[in-house]
């Protein structure tokens, strides 16, 4: 950070610079700018080309594309609501499962862990992040499915009579379901939320923590009173970034969600999500069906953009606040 601030904005050109050297300098600068502009080009092309391919489906369905849940390619009916619902549900589920775990690990790493344990846990988190999506999916599909189904059955037997929340746990249960997809997604976003939250928690001034302890606070009271309030903004940003990642995750979800588009409050029922529907159907589709799948992609794209922008806004605002305090 400080390296930028102290560097001269426009370095004075040495008087001896010959015209050819100046040209070389300018060419190199243009090259770097060109490489940077490539990002803009990719984004612009992406929006234009995918929207263009999706247009027939949007034109055919109109607003019903977003409000209807009837997805029937043979009769050219493409209502995406059940996939939108599925994406929302499994992402929320993933957050509910991942956020407490991630915050726990982040607190452990930044406040509790001895140096050796910290190294080990950091490696575990890195490994979690390194496992490819398709391997999570393979494991969920082949290994987790039946133990989870038994576990769901038990949960369902116990919890479904409870008024109110019982609806979430009603049977019949399926090993491939919203709940399984949410669980796998949670494991996949734990590394992102953990490492960002930990970075934020590491910026809490030692003086504030020591002050809390000096006042007689227990370790938990110190963390609740000094660490958590200070890092709240950054942690929220990390959580929203995790949400964006969960929404776009494709292959693992495609394998474990059960691929049956439906809107239900039953977490243990098979469902479908935007990216998994695209992945499972695209190679067998054509014409309007294919256009509708691209339209699902456009929808997903805009959802993730909104979520990511929100996350960036939160993180940027917090950074400003953190910098103000730290300096």
């Amino acid at each position: 950070m400080t390296a930028i601030d102290t560097a001269p904005r426009t370095p004075a050109r040495p008087a001896a610079a010959t015209p050819s050297r100046r040209t070389a300098d300018r060419v190199f600068q243009r090259m770097t700018l060109g490489a940077g502009l490539l990002v803009l080009l990719i984004l612009a092309l992406r929006v234009l080309s995918t929207v263009d391919q999706a247009r027939p489906a949007f034109a055919h369905m109109g607003l019903r594309f977003f409000t209807s849940s009837r997805w029937a390619p043979p009769s050219d009916e493409y209502g995406a609501l059940s996939f939108i619902y599925g994406t929302g549900l499994i992402s929320l589920l993933a957050l509910v499962l991942a956020v407490p775990v991630s915050l726990g690990i982040a607190v452990y790493l930044s406040e509790l862990a001895p140096l050796n344990a910290r190294r080990v846990v950091t490696v575990v988190i890195d490994l979690l992040a390194a496992v490819p999506s398709v391997v999570w999916g393979l494991w969920g599909f082949l290994v987790l499915r039946s133990p989870l189904q038994r576990f769901y059955q038990t949960l369902s037997d116990v919890l479904s009579p409870v008024p109110g929340v019982g609806k979430l746990f009603e049977g019949p249960v399926s090993g491939l379901s919203f709940a399984t997809a949410g669980t796998i997604l949670a494991l996949m976003i734990i590394p992102i939320i953990t490492s960002l939250s930990r970075d934020v928690m590491d910026t809490v001034p030692v003086a504030q923590k020591e002050a809390a302890l000096a006042l007689g606070a227990t370790r938990w009271e110190m963390i609740r009173g000094a660490v958590l309030p200070y890092s709240k903004g950054g942690v929220i940003g990390a959580v929203v970034l995790g949400l964006g990642r969960a929404m776009g995750e494709t292959i693992a979800v495609a394998l474990v969600i059960g691929s049956s588009g439906q809107i239900t409050s039953r977490l243990f029922a098979a469902g479908d999500a935007l990216p998994s529907q695209i992945a499972n159907q695209f190679n067998e589709s054509e014409g309007l069906f294919r256009s509708a799948l691209v339209a699902l992609g456009v929808t997903l794209f805009f959802f993730t953009i909104v979520v990511n922008l929100a996350a960036r806004a939160i993180v940027t605002r917090t950074n400003r606040h953190l910098k103000g305090v730290a300096l």
Binding site: L33, G36, L37, V39, L40, I42, L43, L45, R46, S49, T50, D52, Q53, L241, G244, R245, M247, G248, E249, T250, P275, I278, A279, F282, L293, V294, G297, L300, F301, T304, I305, V307, N308, L309, R312
Partner: peptide, 26 residues
């Protein structure tokens, strides 16, 4: 320009990988 490009690079980083596939397909 740089601030905008930095921002767009962050946007690009958040694009789901399946949307990348659709993009190159189209």
């Amino acid at each position: 320009t740089a601030t905008t490009l930095r921002f767009l690079a962050n946007v690009l980083a958040g694009v789901p990988s399946i949307v990348m596939g659709l993009f190159i397909y189209t």
